[in-house]
């Protein structure tokens, strides 16, 4: 049986992933795992995904599955969980991006069931 703890733990077990969280669209952190300022990270991820969705809407690209931002130090991946929440993952440069995205996709199905 999945719950948000087990799902976040499975994400953090992927090489290079060190932080993951589930945040409501209002920026309220539902659950988080890893060393981070969850409240501020959650609010920013929620806001960012809203802006990315708005970009897709105005560009007539339809709904958003996932967004990945690459930085000098690693990546941030965010994906909407239905209409109410967002999954956020922070990984360093050692992460296998294909592997991370695969686990994210798998986790999204599980999260949609438990949320």
């Amino acid at each position: 049986m999945f719950n948000t703890d087990t799902i976040l733990k499975s994400l953090n077990d992927v090489q290079g992933v060190h932080q993951s969280l589930i945040v409501g669209r209002d920026g309220f952190v539902i659950n988080s795992m890893g060393d981070m300022e969850a409240d501020s990270v959650g609010a920013v991820i929620s806001t960012a995904i809203g802006a990315i969705e708005a970009m897709g809407r105005d560009c007539k690209q339809g709904g958003l599955f996932e967004v990945m931002a690459e930085y000098n130090g690693g990546v941030v991946i965010a994906a909407p969980i239905g209409k109410e929440a967002v999954l956020g993952i922070v990984a360093d440069e050692s992460a296998n991006l294909g592997g991370v995205r695969f686990v994210v996709k798998k986790s999204m199905k599980e999260l949609e069931k438990v949320m």
């Binding site: 209002d26 920026g27 309220f28 959650g42 609010a43 920013v44 806001t47 995904i49 809203g50």
Partner: peptide
């Protein structure tokens, strides 16, 4: 709301 859509409340939280 146009910029952040459904996540606009997160802006207010910040």
């Amino acid at each position: 709301h146009n910029i952040a859509g459904a996540s606009a409340p997160a802006v207010m939280r910040q």
